[in-house]
């Protein structure tokens, strides 16, 4: 894939981000930060590629392992804590 195509995708994704995020209600800004945290755990894909590389040396494997570990903490911690917070947002007629 060419660098230019990657740049196209990047810029267009910035626009998507801009419009989607302005739609988020201010009362959910903390869950938004937690959710984007979980989503940025997507670096786990990079971590998997590093540690799963067939000819990876020991150095790369160890780096890959820690990257997988940290990114997984983000993924699991981020989504679960977001879920926990969102479960608390209720309307009045709750009981």
């Amino acid at each position: 894939m060419s660098e230019i195509a990657a740049l196209y995708i990047f810029v267009l994704a910035c626009f998507i981000g801009y419009y989607v995020i302005w739609g988020v209600t201010p009362s959910l800004h903390t869950p938004l930060v937690a959710l984007t945290n979980a989503i940025s755990g997507i670096v786990i894909v990079g971590a998997l590629l590093v540690s799963g590389f067939e000819e990876a040396g020991l150095g790369a494997e160890i780096m890959g392992f820690f990257a997988v570990l940290l990114a997984s903490i983000n993924v699991f911690g981020g989504f679960l804590v977001t879920n926990r917070m969102l479960a608390m947002f209720k309307k009045k007629d709750r009981k």
Binding site: A6, I9, F10, V11, A13, C14, I16, G17, Y18, V20, I21, L32, T36, I39, S40, I42, V43, V45, G46
Partner: peptide
């Protein structure tokens, strides 16, 4: 995928 997600989170 990383580029798209990174850009959206960055903008957020």
């Amino acid at each position: 995928l990383l580029i798209i997600v990174g850009a959206i989170v960055g903008f957020s």
